[in-house]
Amino acid sequence: MNSNIWLLSFADSVAIATTLILAALGALFTERAGVLNLGIEGMLLTSAITSFLVADSTGSVWAGLLLGIILGAVLAAIHALLTVVLRANQIVSGLALVIFGTGLANFLGKPAEGKTIKTTIEPMSFGPLSDIPGIGPVVFGQDIITYVALAIAVLASWFLFRTRAGLEVRATGDDPATVDAQGLSVATIRIRYTLLGGALVGFGGAFHMLGQSAAWHLEATTNGVGWIALSLVVFAGWRPIRLIFGAILFGFTLQLPFTLQAEQITFIPSALMPMLPYLATLIALIALSRPSSRNILGAPKALGIPFVRDER
């Protein structure tokens, strides 16, 4: 057997990790501003089918990516309107967004169901560098969006923890009353970062379609990646750099069942392996839905709580 299989499988799993990084970063920005958006899965699907339809009709993956990003922001705007402006329950609105996004994707995707897209995002070539045994395919064999996603994550970390604007975002998530007392608009900041988060989720959905999946099938295109992204934010402690490592780890566990099959390793029941990321997600979502456990995990302190000035 090929001893290289683990490294090569790891290199392959980076594509799915890229979707996770983008979607989870979107959730992270939103949550850092104090807004919990559970609608990621629905947003991913809507952006994925939008990017499919646009890229298929225009022949340009870039046009597809752009429209996917915009659709993510549009769906996030609905969430922002309901939860920030109208102060609806964030969990209810987020779940509604999942169902709405899935329904919308189903509706838009009817003519595309089962079809394969012609134009996809190709891996970059660094010439001989990509052929270095071992690290070559892992480091130099990815497509451009993967490098962009990593750059965004690093930038996000710098922004949140090293800039004044980042401090304002974190403060809005932890202690909106103080931000309000400083004369800043909590609502404006929350809406802004909910939209930014939505755009990143949309980017993830569009990439997943154009860079990873290539064929549209409502039940199988995202396979719950949006939910995994939400749990990833929890496990990363709301920190972008940790999130990168978490995404790579989760991405690899999604590839692992097939690598184990290919290596004839059967001591782990084949039905159990693919469940693990979802099991972790289940635990994270339970934790995320309870204010007391949220605090223990280090969540933004005002996460999920609508800000109302005269109630303080």
Binding site: I5, S9, D12, I16, G114, T116, Q212, S213, A214, A215, W216, H217, E219, A220, T221, N223, L254, Q255, F258, T259, Q261, A262
Partner: peptide
Amino acid sequence: FDPTTERQAAES
């Protein structure tokens, strides 16, 4: 019919 799963299986 599951594009992502089929691809992952083939890649491994």
